[in-house]
């Protein structure tokens, strides 16, 4: 397989891989690195790709595993920091989150969801994968996917309604 053939295979889903990585890792740079890593791993095993009936599903599974590993090692290193300067570290993270006011509310809400729910919402509501595809890529059964998706959707909706009502009530107090 030459480079052009490989690029043709990955071009329909490389953006999806990037968005899934970004959903988990939040930072664009880290997501770019993760996507690069996953695609290069695919390239390195390009001779064996014919064995898989869906390279896209393989790529999504690899992305999920890679990003979760990244988050795990990040958390492990963060835990070390917690002992030395807990409050300092916390404040930094809070400020970082607040600084990015370009983030939409939905994104903020989603970043607080468990990783698995984030992945499922991303794959279903943004990438429009079928439940069977999601179940396969995430190594879960379809019912579990539906349950997790339903929970996540309800949580997002609830938070948005809360924020919406809050916004209206504060507007009223201001006008009063």
């Amino acid at each position: 397989m030459n480079q052009q053939e490989f690029l043709n295979i990955i071009s329909p889903f490389k953006d999806k891989v990037f968005r899934i990585a970004k959903r988990l890792l939040v930072s664009s740079e880290e997501a770019e690195d993760a996507t690069q890593e996953v695609l290069i791993r695919l390239w390195n095993k390009k001779e064996g790709l014919d064995k898989y009936n869906s390279v896209e599903a393989l790529a999504v599974t690899m992305t999920k595993n890679y990003c979760l590993d990244q988050l795990k090692s990040k958390r492990a290193s963060n835990l070390k920091l917690v002992h030395s300067n807990y409050s300092d570290n916390q404040a930094g993270v809070d400020k970082q989150v607040e600084d990015k006011d370009s983030w939409s509310w939905v994104e903020k809400i989603m970043n607080n969801l468990p990783e698995q729910q984030r992945l499922i919402v991303q794959m279903r509501d943004v990438e429009e994968y079928e439940f069977s595809e999601i179940a396969k890529a995430l190594e879960m059964n379809e019912t579990a996917v539906r349950v997790a998706l339903s929970r996540a959707r309800k949580m997002i909706k609830e938070k948005l309604v809360e924020k919406h009502n809050y916004g209206i009530s504060t507007n009223r107090t201001i006008t009063k």
């Binding site: 968005r19 770019e32 690069q36 943004v126 948005l160």
Partner: peptide, 26 residues
């Protein structure tokens, strides 16, 4: 209206693209 924000966000997320070049000649 809260749903508008939610679905609008999902729609908007579809447009994010991976722009970094791939160093494919190891």
């Amino acid at each position: 209206l809260p749903y508008k924000e939610m679905f609008g966000y999902f729609k908007n997320q579809e447009e994010i693209q991976f722009t970094k070049t791939l160093p494919l000649q190891p």
